[in-house]
Nucleic acid binder design. Structure first.
Lengths: 338, 338
DNA sequence: TTGAAAGCGCTAACAG
DNA sequence: CTGTTAGCGCTTTCAA
């Protein structure tokens, strides 16, 4: 490969001039700039990443740590990852893909080696063991998700509390007084990822204000688990007319089982989902839903990070406001008469 | 951060000794090695990635180019990506995430800058515009997927022809003589990604040999598209008793619509899917399926690549043998009498 | 079994 | 507006 020195020679200028043409950190006369650019093109020059990183102590790489688990929220994760990668590129950064597997060691490795300038962590747990490391380093980072203690950290996430409230608002407005919440698998709650609890908090506190009753049941994906869960709900609260589902795997089973019970959606029962739009529109009933704005979260995270790298930017929490899209799975609560 | 020189000083040896302790490229007396390792630990030393890359012209990074499109086969893509990342780590490599967006430019950039030592391309098209670049460089690469011309390339993919044949074998063995194939969305065929066609080839040639009739219909995801497709199939070939679906988005709609038509699975019609195992077991009927071995493909790709980087390894095509798992969606064809 | 030293290709003072 | 030059931290000959 051609080197900067060769470009300099070819263009009849010094190495630093070429460097400054590349970085734009110095004003260069148009004449020389054009000449240099011409040489760059002719020689097919690409700056060497290693040399650049060494000399500038900047790798122009952002590390993205994704959960190893490929069982939950996969499309969301992927969408975030892709959004991160494309947004990063527009700011001149590449993305290094780390799996959660290595845990805190990966953080140490990346910060220690200067492999990446900054990092984005997904799937953050309430009491994540990587957080102390992040607080203890000057390497900028952004979390996608919300830990219990956000002090000294920058976080981006959907406002799940508002999400819960929004779901209740919508159902209450339609006259539903008994709502069942189908939550994530018990394992998700045990992992203390927080978002499920936050939704529930929002759901409950708004329901309290509006005089709506809420029954919450975690539920693994699949038909069998859903079948048991639904039976218990209808047994315990026969008057349930509204459902909120926050579990991609449970959506289709719920709809199928309701059908089997002779409960029509939205005539007999209404269903609101918290899921990616794609899931909502491809379900067997087009679902009224609060979407999970994966792209926006990825984009936001990168932009926060770049701001920090540029010396702007602060530690804070960005909660994205939820948006509820009404589709055909919700309607007025059936009156007692019917 | 501590530098190699500091470690050397701390341990009372020269820089090169530390370097050799790290790389193992020279025999070091146990005494000094222990001393050096001790110093490394005490100082919390991590080799600087940029310096290492510059001096050795090896970044220890593998680039992974994933499709930008997040509409199709997302879980598979993600699973491959994660498998690539974890496998790469076990070989001492990190993974750089590139989106298809930049196209050939990304290939140029990465090879030119020495950012990565090698690359893996996913979602390869039959006549992919990145291929000439790969052939023209000495940078090792592996494709996941099969282009039209594989000469000079290393490829890893599921053997989709054998997959098609396997599906026909299974259905024919159960007595089905009229099979309908629900394929990918027309857009997939138009993109010339090849795998869909290969499945179809395998399906048809085996069907020809076994005297089975095959009707193929591309189909976008969702209920509406599936509804139209299914109606046309049953209209054209009322005797259809076996279905092969190669389209995650179409699986659940197909099952629901069959149910609505009063066609019981597997009593009246059998369904074989080509999809990840997860989709097969979480569908409303546990599907007999040929699984898409995402992890295995990712792992294979990395291992091929590492072999090349180590000077072993050759250009060739690795087709992974399909495996059909019988679940509850297939059964004997109904006899004419019934 | 170990050291000394010459770069790898680039950036960023410093100097003009 | 441009050139000179001293490193950045590591690898790897060459020499002992």
């Amino acid at each position: 490969m051609a080197t900067l020195a060769q470009v300099a020679q070819h263009a009849g200028v010094s190495a630093s001039t070429v460097s400054y043409v590349l970085s734009g950190k110095r004003t260069i006369s148009t004449a020389t700039r054009l000449r240099v650019e011409q040489s760059i093109r002719e020689l097919g020059y690409h700056p060497n990443a290693g040399a650049r990183a060494l000399a500038s102590s900047r790798s122009n790489i952002i590390a993205l740590m994704v959960p190893l688990r490929t069982d939950m929220y996969v499309p969301v994760m992927m969408e975030i990852a892709v959004a991160v990668a494309t947004t990063a590129r527009t700011h001149g950064y590449d993305v290094l893909l780390l799996t959660g597997e290595e845990g805190p060691d990966a953080v140490r490795r990346v910060t220690g080696s200067g492999l990446a300038d900054a990092m984005i962590l997904m799937d953050v747990e309430l009491d994540d063991e990587r957080l102390p490391l992040l607080r203890g380093t000057d390497q900028p980072s952004v979390l996608i998700g919300l830990p219990a203690d956000t002090s000294g950290l920058t976080c981006v996430d959907l406002d799940f509390e508002a999400t819960g409230a929004l779901c209740v608002d919508h159902l209450a407005m339609l006259g539903h007084r008994d709502i069942a919440v189908i939550g994530e698998a018990p394992a998700v709650y045990e992992r203390h990822t927080g978002f499920a609890e936050r939704t529930l908090d929002g759901l409950r506190s708004r329901a309290g204000k509006l005089g709506v009753r809420v029954l919450h049941r975690p539920c693994g994906g699949g038909y069998d688990a859903m079948s048991v869960t639904l039976a218990r709900i209808l047994d315990e609260r026969p008057g349930t007319s509204g459902f909120v589902v926050q579990n991609e795997q449970a959506v289709e089973p719920l709809l199928a089982l309701l059908r089997r019970q002779g409960l029509a959606v939205p005539e007999d029962v209404s269903v609101v989902a918290v899921c990616p739009d794609q899931v909502a529109v491809q379900a067997s009933v087009r679902l009224t839903s609060v979407s999970i704005p994966a792209q926006e979260m990825g984009r936001h995270a990168v932009e926060r990070l770049v701001a920090k790298l540029d010396g702007r930017g602060t530690d804070d929490v960005v909660l994205i406001a939820p948006e509820l899209t009404v589709r055909t799975s919700t309607g007025p609560a059936p009156t007692a008469a019917s």
